[in-house]
Design a protein around this nucleic acid. Structure first.
Lengths: 141, 141
DNA sequence: TTCCATGCAAACACTTTGCACCGTG
DNA sequence: CACGGTGCAAAGTGTTTGCATGGAA
């Protein structure tokens, strides 16, 4: 995905601001990032920018389909760029590790939801909590 | 599931208070309920009870495995009793409808996560967002 | 020059905590 | 009668909003 997002911004009546660029760049660089983390990165790479600006821009970017969010913890939303291949997430409750999984792994599940429940699942937003085997075995906590 | 939760409470060093009973009863009656909704029900059925007491009791009840929570909306947690058969949830982003689904529907998905990803999914906490076909077709909003 | 975007501070929604008093066990 | 539970109020988080100013188009 190249530079056409600039077009998309303008085409939707939005403006291209430095803050907007920085927020998008930060999300792409971080992989999975909370608004606070985005703020931190943007700040280090340059100027001052406000948290509310980060929120507002993440919202715009998501509306344009440039980023997506998922709830990787009980409290905070985390954003990731859609430049990456689509994926869903599994999160280990014990070691907090987050792994991105190929949607193919959920394909038949998705299919069953569609045919049996009449439900079109949004995998890009899916988060499955549980625990990884490593944590299961070393259950010293 | 009968009355043995009283034992379980005491066995874990907790006490059996009227508030505790009321909170559990409210969750069972409501099916899926946010802390605020639990509060409302408890209040109507009787005495005054504080929101923080509701939170504290939901926490205790979850620790004992009597209730579980899942994030059925982007903001609030909703609790449900474990007396009901285990299930996971699908939530329509358009009509907000929440449907409980038999874990069997996710069984093979769960299995793939286990074998291919070395991950033990916690289905009871699973929420799949998306949209129901009815909403898909009548796409006038 | 027009509006959208930004910064800042205040408001919000949800949840947690400190503390004195209450009541179960 | 000891110790966990409760109510109340205050403090925390994470997120949103109002408003005057700034800057992209």
């Amino acid at each position: 995905m190249g530079e056409d997002w600039r077009e998309r911004l303008r085409g939707s009546g939005y403006r291209l601001t430095p803050q907007r660029e920085l927020v998008l760049a930060a999300v792409e660089r971080l992989g999975h990032a909370t608004p606070e983390e985005v703020l931190a990165v943007v700040r280090e790479s340059a100027s001052a920018i406000n948290l509310s600006t980060v929120y507002r821009n993440l919202e715009v970017l998501e509306e344009l389909g440039l980023v997506r969010h998922a709830h990787l913890s009980d409290r905070v939303a985390t954003y990731h760029s859609t430049t990456d291949h689509e994926h869903f997430h599994i999160v280990c409750r014990k070691c907090q590790r987050v792994v991105s999984v190929d949607p193919e792994v959920a394909a038949s599940f998705e299919e069953r939801l569609r045919t049996e429940m009449g439900f079109e699942a949004d995998l890009g937003h899916l988060v499955v909590f549980g625990s990884c085997v490593e944590c299961e075995s070393s259950d010293g906590e």
